[in-house]
């Protein structure tokens, strides 16, 4: 079975660059939205709530950006077909003997 080619953004180098930029921007937007929310709900003084929001935003950005990239990659290319399994040696042995 042939591996599917990317259809949404193509399989070129430029498309890969676009996917990376898009996923990074997505991660940034998510963090931009999330951080004020954390600052609002965090119990504690104003300073602690704000610093906690900042720290969590820094920690969350990397996984969010990676997840966004995976999502963009999937949308662009779809799932990948399983690799065909290699034929077992025992079957060959029987044929060779015959």
């Amino acid at each position: 079975m042939k591996y599917p080619r990317h259809t949404l953004l193509g399989s070129t180098d430029l498309a890969a660059w676009l996917r990376v930029v898009l996923s990074t921007a997505l991660g940034l937007v998510l963090v931009w939205v999330l951080a004020p929310g954390i600052a609002t709900v965090w119990a504690g003084t104003a300073f602690e709530a704000t610093t906690a929001a900042f720290l969590l935003a820094f920690v969350l950005f990397a996984p969010l950006a990676l997840l966004a990239h995976l999502l963009v990659y999937l949308v662009a290319g779809g799932l990948v077909a399983d690799k065909p399994k290699a034929r077992k040696n025992s079957a060959n042995k029987g044929r060779d003997a015959a």
């Binding site: 963090v31 931009w32 951080a35 004020p36 600052a39 609002t40 104003a46 300073f47 709530a49 704000t50 929001a53 900042f54 935003a57």
Partner: peptide, 8 residues
């Protein structure tokens, strides 16, 4: 990230 400062 100036938006984080908005709540407080």
């Amino acid at each position: 990230l100036p938006a984080t400062l908005f709540p407080h």
